[in-house]
């Protein structure tokens, strides 16, 4: 029997510092008191449900909608910009309107699109908090919200990019964009060489979340699949 071992307590009250079978620490149970903000959120939410302003279903659906956003929306925008020069011009001039053309659920935010080229590499951070274009990229990765990335990328961006596996040529200028106020940023990566004639769909598959934050650049799969070129 797979679970018939008596050599340890199976009550699942994992001690602090205990490791899972795969060697990862267990997340501590959240047994502490609520913070003021948590208590306020619960109180307002319950009052709104009680007064019939929203239902619990609607709140769950809104959370699901936010969680369902993925970098695919941003990748579609980038692939269109690579294949349609008029679209790219509209995207640079008014990022929000151009993203909405492709169906991005962009709300009240403004979008600035910053373009990489042979001389320029752009990378985005929010040093004050963690502003991020969720409507194009989905929820941000944990590292984007952490102090290490937020403080270091404005001090030593080249070293940070190197740690992401991106070594920039000497003659490339790095432009760091600190998202301090009402704008959100999307990096428009340079289209990789060797993708002439590719479909938008095949191109979009090269555009990862990290490429659009600016800590990576799109790379062809190695070796380049013959099937992708149509």
């Amino acid at each position: 029997m797979p679970h018939d071992h008596h050599d340890h307590d199976h009550g699942h009250d994992h001690a602090p510092g205990a490791l899972s079978p795969s060697g990862h620490p267990y997340r501590a149970d959240q047994d502490g008191p609520l913070t003021r903000a948590q208590a306020l959120e619960i109180a307002v939410r319950e009052l709104m449900i009680e007064k019939g302003l929203v239902t619990a279903d609607e709140i769950a659906a809104a959370i699901a909608r936010m969680q369902a956003r993925t970098p695919a929306m941003g990748a579609a925008v980038v692939a269109r910009a690579w294949t349609d020069p008029d679209y790219k011009a509209r995207l640079i001039a008014d990022g929000r309107a151009a993203a909405q053309e492709l169906g991005a659920d962009i709300e009240a935010m403004h979008l600035l699109v910053v373009e990489n080229d042979a001389q320029t590499h752009n990378v985005v951070v929010c040093t004050l908090c963690s502003c991020y274009p969720r409507f194009l990229l989905g929820p941000p990765p944990d590292w984007y919200k952490q102090r290490a990335y937020r403080s270091r990328v404005v001090i030593e961006p080249r070293r940070v990019l190197g740690e992401f596996g991106l070594d920039l040529a000497e003659d490339v200028t790095v432009r760091v964009h600190d998202s301090t106020a009402d704008m959100r940023y999307l990096v428009l990566p340079a289209r990789p060489e060797g993708t002439e004639g590719w479909s938008e769909e095949a191109l979009a598959a090269l555009v990862t979340r990290d490429c659009m934050i600016g800590v990576a650049v799109p790379r062809l799969p190695d070796p380049a699949p013959v099937a992708a070129a149509e």
């Binding site: 404005v154 001090i155 080249r158 070293r159 200028t173 964009h177």
Partner: peptide, 19 residues
């Protein structure tokens, strides 16, 4: 301008939104 002699690369830039 921001980091003086400690700058990783003097000509790289930071753009920020300021009121």
């Amino acid at each position: 301008e921001i980091w003086g002699d400690e700058a990783e690369r003097p000509d790289d830039t930071i753009d920020a939104e300021i009121y």
